[in-house]
């Protein structure tokens, strides 16, 4: 077994110490600080990013709340405006309706008056026509010409009796 040959034992130990000591020195002074630096940097960056993300999230939530509040206010306002407009329109409609019905009543009253006048006139005419006819009929039948007062009285009486 060449491993047990002591010829190179000292050489092996010597070079092991030299190589490993050099390796250890370079590792601890150069290589490992660099790796740990990079890893720390990354950890810091990740932590930083996480913190920033958290901050942004809180900000976004605040913005959302604000927006919802503004939306609610706007909604209320819109409802107010709508109500006002409706009320106005209702009032206007009522006013217009009453004006129209007033006008309508006026017109119908006028028409009724006119009808009444015409009726009165017609009735007056009817009375004189009836008196004339009664005078003529009386004269023809009995040859007596009644006085105007009697005739009109008689006509009135019979017309009243007719209703």
């Amino acid at each position: 077994m060449p491993q047990l040959d002591p010829e190179f034992f000292v050489s092996q130990l010597f070079w092991l110490v030299v190589v490993f000591a050099t390796l250890y020195f370079l590792m601890s002074k150069l290589v490992l600080p660099r790796i740990s630096e990079v890893l720390e940097e990354r950890q810091d960056k990740v932590d930083d990013d996480l913190a920033r993300a958290e901050k942004l999230r809180i900000e976004a939530e605040a913005a959302l709340t604000e927006y919802e509040e503004a939306l609610a206010v706007a909604r209320e306002e819109a409802a107010g405006v709508l109500k006002q407009a409706t009320d106005e329109m209702k009032a206007q409609a009522v006013e217009q309706q009453s004006a129209f019905s007033r006008k309508l009543a006026e017109q119908s009253k006028e028409a009724e008056d006119r009808i009444l006048a015409a009726k009165t006139e017609a009735l007056g005419n009817l009375k004189s026509v009836a008196a004339e006819a009664a005078v003529a009929a009386t004269a023809k039948l009995i040859g007596v010409t009644p006085g105007d007062g009697d005739v009109s009285k008689a006509v009135d009486t019979s017309m009243e009796g007719q209703g």
């Binding site: 190179f8 000292v10 050489s11 092996q12 010597f14 070079w15």
Partner: peptide, 10 residues
Amino acid sequence: DLNLSFTNAS
């Protein structure tokens, strides 16, 4: 007396 040769192992 020491053999410090640079060997294939080294």
